[in-house]
Deep mutational scan, measured.
Amino acid sequence: MMAYMNPGPHYSVNALALSGPSVDLMHQAVPYPSAPRKQRRERTTFTRSQLEELEALFAKTQYPDVYAREEVALKINLPESRVQVWFKNRRAKCRQQRQQQKQQQQPPGGQAKARPAKRKAGTSPRPSTDVCPDPLGISDSYSPPLPGPSGSPTTAVATVSIWSPASESPLPEAQRAGLVASGPSLTSAPYAMTYAPASAFCSSPSAYGSPSSYFSGLDPYLSPMVPQLGGPALSPLSGPSVGPSLAQSPTSLSGQSYGAYSPVDSLEFKDPTGTWKFTYNPMDPLDYKDQSAWKFQIL
């Protein structure tokens, strides 16, 4: 009977010793046993002879290597770790002494450095960015050149030099007046198309007034536009458009034309069986010896 009264063996659950049927240790109110408190290391007290050895090595170098620390530790009968900690504390003490010396050398008012006064946003004049500046400075420094007289040679050079070769001289006033084509001369031969040399188009003023001019072949195509416009036809070669000034309004060009419109200028042929003959000019830059190549039959 006494065997049943004795408590059973101890069981360990999660490293906790349980005594038989008792489960009081598993209750929430019972805390787990805490780790033992780490003991504080005792402070090391250095003797005068030990301090002399350490100070002598510190005077040589503030960062001794492990071999120098072990050698000193053997002399003063201390572990190497204590020597390492002593050098660490000695360097910190040396830095603190240097900072105190710097503070003593500075004057009393030198510690508080005078800061520059901050400028207020409204006091300083700042350039306004509302208006974009002129990058080319046209509004201040540029002045347009004065327009020359209508009959000045410089204007003629600016007008005619675009179309004339570089080897030719500017046309005088008398020749510029001949550039304007007359109405009857352009409409006299509506079906004849003559190819003149390129030099005649640039230099010869008579080429624009003769039936064999460069633009005589364009007349049949330009004249039928007159009834559609409801007024006189516009002429690209009329009046002052080739003269001194090219800047004319469309209203000033509306009254200039080749001449009176005639039914002869239409595109319809009077004789459907007729042929169109292209007159060959020996001055043509295209060297075609066979003139029969310039004739064709309209079917």
Results as ranks from 00 to 15, higher is better:
M2A: 00
Y4M: 00
M5F: 11
A17T: 07
L18R: 01
G20C: 12
S22F: 14
D24N: 07
L25I: 06
L25E: 01
L25V: 05
M26S: 03
H27Q: 02
A29C: 10
A29H: 06
V30W: 11
Y32Q: 03
Y32I: 03
S34V: 06
P36V: 03
P36N: 08
Q39C: 08
T44I: 11
T44G: 11
F46R: 13
T47G: 08
S49Y: 09
E53D: 05
A59L: 05
T61S: 08
A68Q: 09
R69F: 11
V72E: 11
V72I: 09
V72F: 12
A73C: 14
N77Y: 06
L78S: 12
S81F: 13
S81Q: 01
S81G: 05
V83Y: 15
Q84N: 09
V85T: 13
V85I: 08
K88V: 13
N89Q: 13
N89F: 11
R91K: 12
K93Q: 14
K93Y: 14
R95N: 13
R98D: 05
Q100W: 08
Q101K: 12
Q103V: 06
Q104A: 04
P107A: 05
P108T: 07
G109I: 04
A114I: 06
P116G: 04
P116C: 05
K118N: 03
K120N: 02
T123R: 11
S124K: 11
P127T: 06
D134K: 10
D134P: 08
S139Y: 05
D140V: 12
S141F: 05
P144A: 05
P145A: 08
G148I: 13
S150R: 10
T155I: 15
A156Y: 15
A158I: 11
P165N: 01
A166T: 02
S167P: 04
Q175V: 12
R176W: 12
G178Q: 05
V180Y: 04
S188G: 06
S188K: 07
A189D: 00
P190R: 12
P190N: 03
A196Q: 02
P197R: 11
A198H: 08
S204A: 06
P205I: 11
S210M: 11
S210F: 11
P211G: 04
G217F: 11
Y221R: 07
L222G: 02
S223R: 12
S223M: 11
P224W: 15
P224M: 14
V226H: 08
G231M: 08
S241I: 12
V242Q: 06
P244M: 10
A247Q: 07
S249R: 13
P250H: 05
P250W: 12
L253M: 04
G255D: 02
Q256V: 10
S257K: 10
S262T: 11
P263N: 06
S266M: 10
S266F: 12
E268H: 11
E268Y: 15
F269V: 02
T273D: 00
G274N: 01
T275R: 11
W276K: 00
K277I: 12
F278Y: 01
F278L: 11
T279D: 00
T279M: 06
M283H: 11
P285M: 08
D287S: 07
Y288K: 10
K289M: 04
K289Q: 06
W294Y: 00
K295F: 14
Q297L: 15
Q297I: 11
I298W: 02
